[in-house]
Nucleic acid binder design. Structure first.
Length: 554
RNA sequence: GCGCCUGUAGCUCAGCUGGAUAGAGCAACGGACUUCUAAUCCGUAGGUCGUAGGUUCGAAUCCUACCAGGCGUGCCA
């Protein structure tokens, strides 16, 4: 509807200009928004005020002029007001909102779907946590965010693929192997120095213990280097399995697990470095090979091959992203933890150096989670093994509450996750408030069935009977759902859905308490059935986008 | 030091590309169940939007400086 009004206003201004009633000239960006206060209309625009400065006319006079030239061909506008300093407020006809109830009912699950991404493919790479330890709570936030964002993009028409990039080689793998090896030796009571930066978590001991149990002492005599590599691989494989289990439980599914080692077995990584060298973007210094990322705005140049001949993760990432581009997506999103933000300039530099279209590549940073236990911050480090696992948190607070909690805040905003509070919140958690809407509607229909009340289809319902203010508010929420979804997809901000849901739930609960759906008035009952059915559908869709269940009873 | 993010009610946070009287949940207090689920509703109270300037018809939103917190600043990821 925003778009529709946009056109109507634009045409009105154009006509006014043709008649010489408004000066010619470029229009300011036309903004149609929702007024905070319903008394200011369903939609409002500030265009008259925006035009005031360069036309040297009073904003209210401009507004009056525009209003005089507005033509409402489809007859959806109830009335228009010029208000305040020069707002133009639009009040739409009930029938207009009711039209969307019909649409929502007709389209069912598809309602709210958009065309923004029609015919386009998007790749969302997220999480990509190193398989060096179990997922912790900070990973949970990224997983919830990435998955919901992917859902959102799907809803507006993108063909979306979710991808997890697995760092299964390099320094961290070495360290993992060394850590397991040390613990393995300890199992046999061999004196051994634990690697200084090694992974100290208890899970490393478990892995070492299991290796001992299943394979005995065969690794005691084998060459150390080989054993470390082998144990690194074993451990990574095992840990990746845990990660997959946790994600399964968290309802996050990936379409592809892209392994870093594949970049080397396919030869892509070395080829890409050659290409960069050929373009003159690489140089040697101090025994290392550097990429001239400063040419593209990075603070300093970055190493791609170290003095010890090892390639850096950055080298892998260059080829990985080149591969993403080669796969032909229209949108490439990377979701990273905010601690990686220093990495963005070099990644963008690499994209440009390869002559790729920077505009389709976007990194979204998700701020880390501060875990609070007894109001005190728990330091989190996979290396020291001091962290609270995602699995543990899911068990304590449940998947639904957990996901909702993570998506309650903007990705930009750091999140304090107070374990006690999250647990305690239980029934008071807003997620239940929203889910309860869904359950309540189910309950209404169950009751209706018991009473033998007919569940209508749209053909035999008179929607115009819905005349209560609350009914208008509800119909309106249903109506704006599609453009709301589109707005979120454009801004890449799934968290707005929680505000939308709580707003809708609030109006619904209030309505439910004040008025009866099932009454002696058959026709009114049918109309209300339709309304609540449609609301239930929207709630279900919205919860679905968040990856949260819509329970039939609670 | 430099860079990025954040600073809004007692707490946790919304506030959609600059708009009208800044919102919600929790916590606090007072009410509402013989009715379709009270996991709900109704009401009360709670604010120098970190500070100081600037831009303009208009700023929580944009710009500058400063203050506070987080993160980064490596031949780690």
């Amino acid at each position: 509807m925003k778009k529709g009004l946009n056109e109507i206003i634009r045409r009105a201004i154009a006509r006014a200009q043709e008649r010489g009633e408004l000066p010619e000239g470029a229009l300011p960006p036309l903004i149609v928004g929702y007024p905070r206060d319903e008394r200011h209309g369903d939609y409002a625009t500030n265009v008259a005020m925006a035009m005031a400065s360069h036309t040297k006319k009073a904003p209210r006079a401009i507004a009056e002029t525009i209003v005089r030239f507005i033509e409402d061909a489809e007859g959806i506008i109830e009335r228009i007001e010029v208000a305040g300093p020069g707002f133009i407020n639009f009040f739409l006809k009930e029938a207009y909102w009711h039209y969307f109830l019909r649409e929502a009912d007709r389209q069912g699950e598809r309602y709210g779907a958009g065309e923004l991404g029609k015919g386009k493919r998007a790749l969302v790479e997220f999480l990509s946590a190193n398989p060096t330890g179990p997922l912790h709570i900070g990973h949970g936030r990224i997983a919830a965010f990435g998955d919901s964002l992917a859902n959102l993009l799907e809803k507006v028409g993108y063909k979306v693929e979710r991808e997890y990039y697995v760092n299964d080689r390099g320094t961290q793998m070495q360290l993992l192997g060394q850590s397991v090896y040390s613990r393995y030796l300890e199992e046999w009571e061999r004196a051994v120095a634990f690697p200084p930066d090694g992974y100290q978590g208890a899970y490393i001991r478990e892995i070492a213990h299991d290796i001992k149990k299943e394979e005995g002492d065969k690794y005691l005599s084998a060459p150390k280097e080989d054993v470390i590599n082998l144990m690194g691989e074993k451990a990574a494989h095992l840990i990746l399995g845990w990660i997959k289990d946790d994600l399964e439980r968290f309802r996050v599914r990936f379409d592809r697990w892209y392994r870093e080692t594949d970049l080397y077995s396919s030869g892509l990584a070395p080829r890409l470095l050659e290409e960069l060298r050929g373009k003159g973007y690489l140089y040697e210094d101090g025994g290392a090979l550097w990429f001239k990322s400063t040419l593209f705005g990075d603070e300093k140049d970055r190493v791609v091959i170290r003095g010890n001949d090892a390639t850096t993760y950055f080298a892998s990432d260059i080829s990985y992203h080149k591969d993403k581009y080669d796969r032909g997506y229209d949108l490439l999103l990377d979701i990273w933890g905010a601690d990686h933000h220093g990495y963005i300039p070099r990644m963008e530099a690499a994209v440009q150096a390869l002559g790729l279209d920077k505009s389709i590549f976007k990194v979204i940073l998700v701020q880390l989670v501060n875990l609070l236990r007894d109001k005190k911050q728990v330091s989190m480090s996979t290396r020291t093994g001091e962290f609270t696992s995602l699995k543990e948190v899911i068990q304590e607070v449940g998947v639904d509450a957990c996901r909702y909690f993570f998506l309650l805040r903007r990705a930009d905003s750091p999140l304090d996750f107070d374990l006690e509070l999250a647990k305690k919140e239980g029934v008071e958690n807003p997620v239940y408030y929203v889910q309860y809407v869904h359950a309540r509607v189910t309950s209404i229909f169950k009751k209706a069935a018991e009473k033998g009340v007919e569940i209508p289809t749209f053909d035999n319902v008179d929607i115009a009977l819905l005349r209560l203010p609350e009914e208008r508010l509800l119909a309106k929420r249903v109506a704006i759902f599609p453009e709301f979804v589109e707005g979120m997809a454009l801004a890449l901000e799934p968290h707005r859905l929680t505000s939308y849901l709580q707003d809708l739930a609030g109006i619904f609960h209030s309505y439910y308490n004040k008025h009866r759906i099932i009454s002696d008035d058959r026709e009114l009952t049918k109309a209300r059935f339709l309304l609540v059915k449609v609301i239930q559908g929207v709630v279900r869709s919205a919860l679905g986008l968040l990856g949260i269940a819509a329970p039939a009873e609670m």
